[in-house]
Simulated scan of single mutants.
Amino acid sequence: MNRLEGKTALITGASRGIGLAMAQRFAAEGARLILVASRMGSHGRLPGTLESAVEGIRRAGGEAHAVVCNLSDADARADLIARAQRQVGPLDILVNNAAGAKMGLPSQVSADDRRWMMELNLNAPIDLAQQALPGMRERGAGWILNISSATSEQPLVPYRDSAVAAHVIAAYGATKAALNRYTEGLAHEVAGEGVWVNSLAPESIVLTPGAEQVRDIARRHPDMAESVEVMVEAALLLCTGRYVGQIAYSRRLLHANGQDVYSLDGSTRLGDALMPAEIDADRNTTDKESEQ
């Protein structure tokens, strides 16, 4: 516990899903949190709000602040890090988690959808990293974690779910592949200055509150599902250690480092990296359409 005592972390896409779970786990380790989402209120059919995320962390004894920002808008995000630091001071950790997918076959996905995904999934993380880096370099310490996706790699044939499911995610995966390449280059540029930059993707479907259709996939293929605690523990490892340019997958990273998995409040050891996901638990469904 208290591995992040005295540290300030900004997490995008933090009103729900993986982003919120990371915020809860980081707060349990003593971090001061800046939670970023595109709006304060509800987000259509998706559960969770920025207000409830902040309030939940505060009720648990943590410190959290909200910043609203539409990350797909370059002008809106141009001063995001400065706005956050005016509230809480220098930033130690940046987690670029917000992402969005517009599904379409590679032969048909529109230019507008491709531009939107590239703006949110690639340009926004780059912009925020560039905004955060001067302060991190000046202090000689900092962590930047970009959340990627297994869709950055073409699925093996035969496809586990369906050919269409494998094809329609290609454009989204291309933005994540670009983010991985950028992560590696930036990591090697700044490692000598004490700034540690890495990428992390879930090994499989991460089960967090969200859409029923993804839980159905997990039921058909249980080995394709992992608990959100596995993903979050891997993120914590990369935001506390000295890793350079890792393009990491959650379970493999934890297993290679012999890292146990804990509850989001840090109080209970749940198991090791290979712990099975509880597919039908109330807390375990997911939605990857948008984590903005």
Rank of each mutant, 00 (worst) to 15 (best):
N70R: 14
W116G: 00
L94M: 10
L80W: 05
R115S: 11
V109R: 02
V54Y: 04
N96T: 08
I205A: 08
T49S: 14
G44M: 15
G17Q: 10
G100A: 11
V190W: 11
A178R: 01
D92L: 07
D112T: 11
D79I: 03
L46R: 14
Y159C: 10
R58F: 05
S72F: 07
T208C: 06
T8D: 05
I279K: 05
D79L: 09
S38F: 05
R45V: 12
A76P: 01
S72G: 14
N2H: 12
S148M: 11
T175N: 07
G6S: 09
L200T: 06
V261R: 04
R181C: 09
A273G: 07
A165V: 01
D272H: 03
N146H: 12
G271K: 11
V36C: 05
A273C: 12
Q154C: 01
I11E: 01
G6I: 01
A23W: 01
G185I: 09
A124N: 09
R139Y: 03
K102S: 11
L253R: 08
P155F: 12
G41S: 13
G19N: 10
F26M: 15
Y182C: 02
G266P: 08
R181I: 08
V232K: 02
D216L: 15
I247Q: 14
R220P: 01
S110L: 10
A211L: 13
A163Q: 12
D73F: 11
H167C: 12
G104E: 05
R3D: 11
S107W: 13
A150N: 10
D92K: 05
T12S: 13
R283L: 10
R242M: 07
A84P: 07
